[in-house]
Design a protein around this nucleic acid. Sequence first.
DNA 1: GCCTGATTCAAACATTTGTTTTATTCTTAT
DNA 2: ATAAGAATAAAACAAATGTTTGAATCAGGC
Lengths: 222, 222
Amino acid sequence: MSDHLSTTKERILEAAGDIFGREGFKAATIRRIAESARVNVAAINYHFRDKEGLYAAVLEHVFHTGFSKFPSTMGIDADTHPEQQLRAFIKGMFYRLLSNDGWAGLSGGGRLITRELLDPSPAFETVLDTYIRPHKDLLVSIIIAIMQKNPGPEKLHPCAISIIGQCIYYAVAAPVIKKIAEDDAPIESNLDRLAEFVWLFSLGGIERIRRDSPAGDDNAQP
Amino acid sequence: MSDHLSTTKERILEAAGDIFGREGFKAATIRRIAESARVNVAAINYHFRDKEGLYAAVLEHVFHTGFSKFPSTMGIDADTHPEQQLRAFIKGMFYRLLSNDGWAGLSGGGRLITRELLDPSPAFETVLDTYIRPHKDLLVSIIIAIMQKNPGPEKLHPCAISIIGQCIYYAVAAPVIKKIAEDDAPIESNLDRLAEFVWLFSLGGIERIRRDSPAGDDNAQP
DNA sequence: GCCTGATTCAAACATTTGTTTTATTCTTAT
DNA sequence: ATAAGAATAAAACAAATGTTTGAATCAGGC
């Protein structure tokens, strides 16, 4: 890793994103990061204060660039057909998490994010408010639009979790999926097909939940 | 952790399961495990050779007890209506992963397993053959029975992944779910409701995939 | 040209941590 | 009762790792 050009600080950030993602916070060593960034160990403390400071900076950097390259809406207008909005949303998740242009390319296969889900660091609180909550809210509003009614949060939230869960599971379990269902491993060339599958599956799921829900109202937001 | 009675070896296994699950292999320290098990540090090396040996033993122990208490089939006959088989399968996943009688109670909230998905250890290879592959094969056969046709692995595997993914995501993202959708956190009192939801959602998903698939044959196994 | 502050570097420090050693205690078969 | 082996305990060891230090180097303004 660690690109040829760019400043020291940037090289550290990129190398650290990759290594933290691959090995986790504790297992990653600043010596390995420094080596990968072709930088003296002390430079890390100089620029980022300590290991935790570096980690916090990496996290912010990774989320910022990920959601910049692949925004939640994926550039789709809010007046597009809601099912197509969902398609874009899901494709966005796959590319953000698993594309080489996304987190797969700069955080050890998108695993930095998965690790945060499992063990949120102190620095994650900010990320949650800035990126994740709005992202979830958008999804919920898309689901309401598809259902053409608001079945209440006790249906909407599990729906959102089921959809997001399918996407993130590909990132979490990539190593295992490679072993037991090799043709469906979440590698670049499969992303479109897998996203399409999850989209269809989720449309079916949403429809089924809709059918089983009481009338409900038509309010736009939950 | 670490129960009052039982032998030294067992106390170590239980304490280690909890701490490895909570902190991960690298971050967990022999000394903390020994303290939690009320045992001398050297006892761990004596009984399990080294840290890796302990980890391998923990992994086998955790999977064995998990699938013993909550088998893949959950005691449901193979001639039960396939949709009910799926219901049992999903409920089994939720309880195995997230119940206090299951992995939540003996591997730091079921996180030991999730960590293995993310970074499979050498010891995971065995677990994969013994527990995970058969588990997946059962799910695939249930899906075929529900669809009443075999749409081929390129539909079956993603279907299985979508279903398993929804369940496991609750375990992976439990801390985050607690923060952004508190009422749907995967705690004991919610497991039945969440399993029921995932079941319905998945039935919808399967039906949708079935509709969009070409005729296919009726072979029993993929 | 030189001075000041920012940056980089090699080396050293202090702590943590997995493992080993050695002695002691406990268990059990004879 | 006793010898032999299993189990436990305290201490020491060696390697690794995050951080600091103090000197060297570089960049830009006067």
